[in-house]
Design a protein around this nucleic acid. Structure first.
Length: 273
DNA sequence: TTTATAACCTGAACGC
DNA sequence: TGCGTTCAGGTTATAA
């Protein structure tokens, strides 16, 4: 489910909890990708949520006494619900806030439990999961010279390179396919054989695709919904992703499916070289 | 050092 | 209808 745009949409949706104070935490299942801190309830009790930021696909919840690092994995979802709403299957964690006298529950649901909720009282940017991440795709740091310097040393397919969070964060399977289509580059091309002028176009394409997806509220395929339960709309603009055997919107040719690093990759043989 | 693969877990979709 | 198989948006650890 969540790639960078979906995580950003989630972050923005959680804004009503800022300045709220935690009055209860209920962990129904501690077994996420990494075990949830068994003392989380004690740690967060009476703490104030100061701000919410994002680094790649990680949400960073800044509390008075430390940070909660949240990753949604493949099927994680966060919603704000009322106290009356009963938990359903896979609702693993509730963090209960009092905000301006009102009670609001941050509810974490994750069917496949590939997500994570990690407590740290250190600077989260020093955390081993965060400190090795590549630049944000929309930042100036992610530019032609930067990416070209990386790809010229890589023999792996370009799609694998741009999906590597150490190269650039937030480009998952959907947006990798879409960005490569926009840049007219086949996903299986060997990274080091791609010319600098193509890398320039690719960098621009990644920025465009990510920016547009954020503006559309992310992509809702099977299970992404924002905090308010709204679906995203960017899936309506997918040019190649999940469109095997359909017509290319550009040339009317056929969209092909190819497995790269065990992941489905979609491309047009005519438009992408 | 780089690249490929297995693993984590659940449920939907599909074929027989 | 029911069972078995395959596949899915992410990321890390391990093997090659």
């Amino acid at each position: 489910m969540p790639e960078l745009p979906e995580v950003e949409v989630t972050r923005l949706g959680l804004a009503p909890l800022i300045n709220g104070t935690v009055y209860n935490v209920e962990v129904r299942n501690f077994s996420l990708r990494w075990p949830v801190n068994p003392n989380l309830k004690k740690i967060l009790s009476s703490q104030k949520l100061i701000s919410l930021s994002r680094r790649g696909k990680y949400l960073l919840a800044d509390f008075s006494n430390g940070y909660l690092i949240i990753h949604l994995g493949m099927s994680g979802r966060i919603s704000i619900v009322s106290e009356k709403k009963l938990p359903i299957k896979h609702d693993h964690i509730d963090i209960c806030f009092k905000v301006d006298g009102n009670k609001k529950i941050l509810r974490y649901n994750d069917t496949r439990r590939f997500g994570a909720m990690i407590w740290t009282d250190d600077n989260p940017f020093n955390h081993k999961l965060i400190c090795t991440l590549g630049p944000e795709p929309l930042s100036d740091e992610f530019n032609t010279d930067y990416l070209f310097d990386i790809v010229k040393r890589k023999t792996q397919p370009i799609k694998s390179t741009i999906m590597d969070s150490h190269t650039v964060v937030g480009v998952g399977n959907i947006y990798a396919s879409e960005s490569l289509f926009l840049a007219s580059i086949r996903p299986q091309r060997q990274s080091q054989k791609i010319k600098k002028k193509e890398i320039r176009v690719l960098v621009g394409s990644i920025k465009i695709v990510i920016q547009k997806a954020i503006e559309r509220g992310g992509s809702t395929l099977n299970d992404f919904y924002s905090v308010n339960g709204q679906s995203g709309y960017f899936q309506n603009e997918h040019k190649v992703y999940a469109r095997e055997n359909e017509c290319c919107t550009n040339c009317n040719g056929k969209i092909y499916l190819l497995k790269i690093a065990q992941r489905s990759s979609f491309y047009c043989k005519k438009c992408q070289i």
